[in-house]
Design a protein around this nucleic acid. Structure first.
Lengths: 283, 283
DNA sequence: CGTACTATTGATAGATATCAACGCTGGTGG
DNA sequence: CCACCAGCGTTGATATCTATCAATAGTACG
């Protein structure tokens, strides 16, 4: 496939947050990630009511799950960043009860039921996938809390905290910033507010010097402040034991992934310095 | 255990919505349901941060999952009615990221990891449990949509539609009504509104002759109207093929559960006829 | 018969949506 | 290459919704 010197698939990074993989398993995941297909931005991948076309894996870009109301108003129920999976239990369902679409250009792998079965036969992968599902569910709980009980400012702050950490984990953060592939209208559909109000809330977040947001790049100016405003507790993301030790109000620095070797891998420099991912060796 | 002539455990009813169980499997589930323990109303079952004490099954009463904020404000993220399970993947998690408590007096069974493993070894049960998890997740999506994008009136209407159908499915509805074991303040925490506003919204629902709510009993006066107001589509509850055929704006009648024998069981008459369930203790 | 929780109501303040207008930008076709 | 167009961001004015505060009445229960 056409993506130059191939970076380690984000799926491996993700799963190795939870479990140690064997070489065979790692190779399997890597192979699966070869079949990525480009998808245009703002495209529907799956529509509500469809028969589930199988599971999928996002390798690049930003996708999302959403539900649409008769009025046209939509609620976004999940953001899918590189390494995230969708519809793992597609074979169990006869109809999709929500839609999936892309925000940006994406690279997506479709997984057949057989592929999924194969994956499930590897105990560590199976375990990792279940953990990943758990995190998705925990995130849903957190979002419900967010939308149901936080003010508009808090909601945005919380979303940004979550997104920043998630991007950082897969190496798509650059220093204290990341590319926000969402319009204000998208943010509105994520947080259950109107887009005019999103605009004003962003203005307020900027005024308080918590964030900077210009030309699609969100820079976190005051991590402690943003976190405090959002009452953000990263535990639900299960970012790994390493990370737990972080003092709760420091700006989180990219930390070694759990690669078992004890040495910091290149991933880090990448997240910190802004270089692209390079193949990383685990032993 | 102390519950007289024993009705079929709601878990069997629930799982047989999805799959046909063998006699052995049915007996296993029935046995598991013998170990019910009474829990007082308004009691914490599990607190956020705890080590997960294993999975549990609600046999009677109403329990709920929730998250609490520093301010004391809480968001309820799920309601657990008879037949509902919680924490099936407890063994995978080291800390609870939310709390669980009871609204009413409940009868709850705690399931050890070994019990869960045993259950998983029966293919139909395993399948049924996965389906049940899927429904829980779909419900979470629906709630996020509810809280994020519906008006206060619509939110309550939607909640009532869901609850009514769920209660009906497990035989706890009585004609067009069911016992609402929630205070207005609980409803507020469910829907993300203030309790004063819940009060006023209920008033409005009554004024429109959609519902009647007196002394804990919620009667649906105009199912079609309530459903329309809430844009309620029951599909996400996966109530079973039988039910799908229902004309979408009729008042749903209790239908035979798929128990394989072809004959309607007692549980049903109960729901249909308006007699109260026998040997049930409320406090 | 208190006591505590729950439900109800009114008055008010605050938050957020809606409507409308305008400038900017990037892309597209002539 | 330029003119145009569509989508996005921004702002102001206004209406609506919802929370908050406070007081009262009803209800359950010991």
């Amino acid at each position: 496939m056409p993506f130059g010197t191939r970076p380690l698939t984000p799926l491996i990074h993700k799963i190795e947050r939870f479990v140690r993989l064997s070489d065979v398993e790692r190779r399997l995941l890597q192979e699966i990630s070869e079949a990525g297909r480009r998808v245009s931005p703002r495209t529907a991948l799956i529509e509500e009511g469809d028969e589930p076309p199988g599971a999928f894996l996002v390798l690049e870009g930003l996708a999302y799950r959403y539900k649409q109301r008769a009025s046209g108003r939509r609620q976004i129920t999940a953001l899918l960043i590189p390494g995230d999976l969708g519809n793992l239990d597609a074979p169990l369902q006869s109809r999709m009860d929500h839609s999936v679409g892309t925000f940006s250009a994406c690279v997506v792998v479709w997984l057949t039921p057989e592929t999924i079965r194969t994956l499930q036969q590897h105990p560590n992968i199976a375990h990792g996938l279940r953990m990943s599902t758990l995190v998705d569910e925990a995130t849903l709980h957190e979002w419900l809390l967010n939308v149901g009980s936080r003010s508009s400012l808090e909601r945005l702050a919380h979303l940004f905290c979550e997104l920043y950490l998630r991007y950082q984990t897969v190496g798509w953060a650059r220093g204290q910033s990341f590319e926000l592939l969402l319009t204000q209208s998208d943010l509105a559909d994520l947080t259950g507010m109107s887009c005019v109000h999103v605009n004003r809330s962003l203005k307020e977040l900027r005024r308080r010097r918590l964030i900077e947001l210009t030309s699609r790049r969100l820079r976190i100016l005051d991590w402690a402040g943003l976190k405090a405003l959002a009452e953000f507790d990263a535990h639900y993301l299960h970012l790994g034991e390493d990370r737990e030790g972080l003092a709760s109000d420091d700006l989180p620095l990219p930390l070694p992934l759990h690669n078992g070797s004890g040495k910091v891998d290149k991933q880090l420099d990448c997240a910190r310095g802004g270089l692209m991912l390079v193949q990383v060796k685990h032993s």
